[in-house]
């Protein structure tokens, strides 16, 4: 599959297909369908310095071609994750990405400093989770705060840093520029769109937090446009995601300028999606005579 070999922040991935944070656990859960090392990379469930129980009440709500979620970053904390899961993830021959969130700068920094003791390939800095109150997303809404957190993490982290951006910011490409100026090695976009649902029978919001994050095919055209704009605005690699559910969707994101793509919600209806996209991309390159997938990157 050499046609798909993709370099991202110095790491050579076998293909540009990455399992998105929060949809693939720590790499074990879909083993009944395909070996996870089929994937170019795996981004861990979002982690925070301290363990989080996640949100109470309804956490999932299906919408037309989409899914609202309000999981609330349920996770065992960076330390417990590192001790319990990194060695297992390390055995998977795939780029090991740790998604790191936090409630404040100190928490992010402490989390990143713990990760300095571990052998991982990339930190995905989550400044875009809409589901925790003090949450990561606060950092992702303005250029100043996104730049600040990127700069501070880069100062102390020995790992490359990819910043995961929120589509809820006034201008996502401006945020990306600010991350680049402050040393980000890559950006990934988009996290979920803030949305809501109302239970009209009980006359209340469906989610305890009222707002939740929308993902799935419904957001794909907007995510694609944002990836396109951002890839034009920065020179660091852009990893694209948002509603990808076929290999054709993946091709679109790469043509829009993405170096690699992530699959998230698409894993749920189709647990074979990662494998199918890797195979589909390979065949697409073969059929079109491309020696490497990078030949179509950013051609639009």
């Amino acid at each position: 599959m050499s046609r798909l070999v993709t370099k991202l922040v110095g790491y050579e991935m076998k293909n540009p297909v990455i399992a998105a944070s929060g949809t693939y656990g720590y790499g074990e859960d879909y083993k009944g369908y395909y070996e996870p090392d089929v994937l170019g990379g795996i981004s861990s469930k979002g982690l925070t310095l301290n363990p989080k129980q996640g949100n109470e009440g309804i956490r999932l709500w299906e919408t037309p071609s989409g899914l609202l979620n309000s999981i609330g970053l349920e996770n065992p904390g960076v330390k417990a994750f590192a001790q319990g899961s990194i060695s297992k993830m390390k055995k998977i021959n795939s780029m090991l990405i740790v998604n790191l969130g936090g409630d404040n700068l100190e928490e992010y920094l402490e989390g990143a400093s713990i990760l300095n003791d571990w052998d991982i390939d990339l930190i995905e800095l989550n400044i875009s989770c809409p589901n925790v109150k003090a949450g990561g997303m606060a950092f992702g809404m303005q250029c100043e705060s996104a730049g600040l957190i990127t700069r501070e993490i880069k100062k102390i982290s020995r790992h490359p840093v990819m910043v995961k951006l929120s589509p809820n910011a006034p201008s996502i490409s401006d945020i990306a520029i600010s991350c680049e100026e402050n040393g980000a090695d890559a950006v990934s976009l988009v996290n979920t769109f803030q949305g809501m649902a109302i239970d009209i029978r009980n006359k209340r919001a469906v989610f305890n937090n009222v707002y939740a994050g929308l993902s799935g095919p419904a957001i794909k055209p907007i995510a694609l446009r944002m990836v396109h704009q951002t890839a034009k605005a920065v020179s660091i690699p852009v990893v694209g995601l948002g509603g990808i559910s076929t290999w054709q969707d993946a091709v679109e994101f790469i043509m829009a300028g993405a170096t690699a793509i992530q699959i998230g919600t698409g894993n749920f209806p189709n647990p074979n999606l990662g494998k199918e996209i890797a195979e589909g991309l390979e065949k697409y390159c073969e059929d079109n005579g491309f020696k490497n997938i990078s030949e179509i990157r950013g051609i639009i």
């Binding site: 129980q53 996640g54 349920e74 749920f268």
Partner: peptide, 21 residues
């Protein structure tokens, strides 16, 4: 519970138990 993945990945169907989630 409402479920999305069914395989334990999404944490959408978490159940509170005496021994934690």
């Amino acid at each position: 519970k409402r479920m999305a993945c069914g395989v334990g990945a999404c944490l959408g169907c978490t159940c509170k138990t005496e021994g934690g989630n």
